[in-house]
Structure formats: C-alpha cells, structure tokens
Amino acid sequence: MWNKLKSLVSDYLKGEELERYESLLYNETAPSIKSCTVCTKQVFDIYSLRAGLPSSLSGKIRGFNKLLKELDKTKDSKIFIHRVSSSNKKLVIFTNCDITRVMGILTFSERKYDEKK
C-alpha cells in the first residue's frame, strides 16, 4: 500500500511541501501506516470543526481548505483516511476507496508534532 500512496502523495504535494516530506516519501521503506474507511459526510463534519480550532490548540496544520473543498464536491459516500508517520514526520492522507485519487493531505508543523511524542 505504501508504494501506491507514495506515488499519489508525490503528485499531490508539489513544490515546497514535497521537499519538506521528501525524507518520508523517498527514504522510508516502510513507515507506519494506519488506515480506515469513514463516511464522507462524517469526515467533512469533523474536519470542518477541526479546521476552525486555533493553531495554539492543535499546532499548525496545513491542508484543510483543499481537503474540505474536495470532500464537499465528491460523490463518494465513503473515503479512506491514512495516517502515515515516520520517526519525525506525519501526514494524514484522504483518498477515495480505490486509492486512486487524493482528496487532501494534512501536514503538521514539526515543532508541535515533536512536542506530542
């Protein structure tokens, strides 16, 4: 599954974001991956609320705007959420159930992620 996700993430994260996550995408042979299937409406409701939280509570998380736009317009009733992490990087990747399309990726500030270890 990692190779399939890695390819999709590389296409999705272009430019600066891709460079920040290059070590996770290209140097990790098997990062920790936890996946689950969730109803799209539930994901939209939860992440709409979470996007509104101040960064002092949850750290700086990027990607909410694109994710919420994609969730709002998708016809898929369920999606996959994949939590991918290595020793110092973490991504939450949202895909369709076939894992052929990325709907959004949440990226986390390294400082806040390190504090939660």
Rank of each mutant, 00 (worst) to 15 (best):
Arg111Leu: 07
Lys41Asn: 15
Thr100Cys: 09
Lys117Trp: 02
Leu24Asn: 01
Leu91His: 09
Ile33Glu: 14
Leu5Val: 00
Ser77Asp: 02
Lys4Gln: 10
Asn96Val: 01
Glu28Asp: 09
Phe94Thr: 12
Lys66Phe: 04
Ser7Asp: 13
Ser58Cys: 09
Ser7Leu: 10
Asn96Ala: 06
Leu25Glu: 03
Gln42Phe: 09
Arg20Gly: 02
Leu67Arg: 01
Ser85Val: 00
Leu106Val: 04
Arg101Tyr: 11
Asp45His: 09
Thr95Tyr: 02
Glu16Trp: 13
Cys39Thr: 06
Lys66Asn: 12
Ser86Cys: 05
Thr29Met: 13
Leu68Ala: 02
Lys117Leu: 11
Leu8Tyr: 11
Ile99Glu: 15
Thr107Ile: 03
Lys41Ala: 13
Ser58His: 03
Ser48Lys: 12
Val84Cys: 14
Lys34Tyr: 06
Ile33Trp: 08
Lys116Phe: 06
Ala51Thr: 02
Arg111Asn: 03
Lys73Asp: 04
Phe108Arg: 10
Tyr47Cys: 04
Gly15Phe: 06
Lys6Asn: 08
Thr37Met: 13
Phe80Leu: 09
Phe108Thr: 00
Thr29Ile: 14
Leu25Met: 05
Ile93Gly: 10
Ser77Trp: 02
Pro54Glu: 04
Gly63Phe: 05
Thr74Lys: 11
Asn27Glu: 09
Val92Ala: 14
Glu70Ser: 12
Leu8Met: 08
Ser87Phe: 02
Asn3Pro: 05
Leu18Pro: 02
Leu91Tyr: 04
Asp76Ser: 13
Lys34Ser: 15
Ser35Leu: 07
Cys36Leu: 09
Glu17His: 08
Ser85Glu: 14
Asn27Cys: 12
